[in-house]
């Protein structure tokens, strides 16, 4: 899978699993911060996103600071998924 299509898939996963009603892929830039500012996700979303990523890609998201840094943006999630696949 190309980098662009992986990022596109991650954005769709974000929208579906986090119930981001009214948002489309175009609203989520690759480097948009997901938590705090940007997409304004919260820690409940982080838990939900971890479940969704683990299920889709069969990987483990560590439950620590490292785990949180993976969720910085679509770019960082894509990088983590690429290295683990």
């Amino acid at each position: 899978m190309s980098d662009a299509s992986l990022k596109s898939e991650i954005k769709r996963l974000l929208i579906e699993s986090l119930d981001l009603r009214g948002k489309s892929e175009a609203d989520i830039a690759d480097d948009l911060p997901l938590f705090g500012a940007g997409l304004k996700l919260d820690s409940l979303d982080a838990l939900q996103l971890a479940v969704a990523l683990e299920e889709r890609y069969g990987l483990e998201i560590p439950d620590d600071e490292g785990g949180r840094s993976i969720f910085a943006s679509v770019n960082t999630i894509a990088a983590y998924v690429s290295t683990k696949r």
């Binding site: 986090l18 119930d19 409940l44 979303d45 838990l47 939900q48 479940v51 683990e54 299920e55």
Partner: peptide, 13 residues
């Protein structure tokens, strides 16, 4: 079907 680790945490509340 899939186990507790696959539960939807954001749904529960």
């Amino acid at each position: 079907e899939r186990g507790v680790r696959r539960a939807n945490p954001a749904e529960f509340p």
